[in-house]
Nucleic acid binder design. Structure first.
Lengths: 123, 123
DNA sequence: TTGCACTGACTACAAACGTAATCCATACTG
DNA sequence: CAGTATGGATTACGTTTGTAGTCAGTGCAA
């Protein structure tokens, strides 16, 4: 298992749109982000070099797709963030997140169900 | 209310030791972090310039203290982290996060309470 | 009292970043 | 078929970051 290469803030933006929907052309990504196409191209290139995304030719353009599941990145980034900001205390961090995230009633319900499962499973 | 200036990873390390206990001399901070004193001095200087910490002279050396409460940084950093990493899809990612975090029954209870509050407040 | 040991101020510097512009090949338009 | 527009590759460039070295002042040891 290759280690996930670190990606920067701007690169996260790009990956987020690809994780949301792949594949996309550079132009589509740029539009989704409302950022300069050249800038986005640079970022796509850097991400490709890191093998975080993959592309396939389609006519004269490339179709980019995420090559590493978002889950994995979220997990690793969360760990390092929590480590840095919360000193490794995961649960307090989680509570903070839940508190500060706006959710619909359905989502709250869903979360309750998840908690029920966890309680069930026991520790 | 002045906006909290962004601080880098290395700067977080420094602030963490100051938040843990202030005031401290540059040397003490360097020792706590086990990092080169010169490096730490640079970081302290940058943080001072950003007014994130304050210092007071004591003989020929400075005693540094955090000038902005940790709480505030945690709040802001969390917000930007959630935004960046969870992207638009905050809640699904959060659910995954909850699912994959090991918690005690008490913590689960605590989280339930938080959800109750949210359900209450919402709609 | 004299020089050294520390300290902060200033300077250095390469790598990473964000943001693009330029260059070059090629696909579509007229 | 020629010219133009478009897309990727390469190059650019100021700023930020991590990491530390150099310089200059000063309090303490001898």
């Amino acid at each position: 298992m290759t280690r996930t290469p670190p990606i920067t803030d701007a690169e996260w933006d790009v990956m987020n749109v690809l994780w949301e929907k792949s594949p996309r052309t550079a132009m589509e990504v740029a539009e989704a982000l409302d950022r300069h196409p050249k800038t986005v191209k640079t970022l796509l290139g850097r991400l490709a070099r890191k093998n975080v995304l993959r592309y396939r030719e389609e006519g004269n353009r490339y179709l980019y797709s995420a090559a590493i599941p978002r889950q994995r990145y979220v997990r690793e980034e969360s760990a390092s963030f929590i480590d840095r900001v919360f000193g490794g205390e995961t649960t307090p961090a989680l509570m903070h997140f839940v508190r500060s995230t706006r959710m619909t009633q359905e989502e709250i319900e869903e979360l309750r169900r998840i908690l029920d499962e966890k309680a069930e499973a026991g520790s």
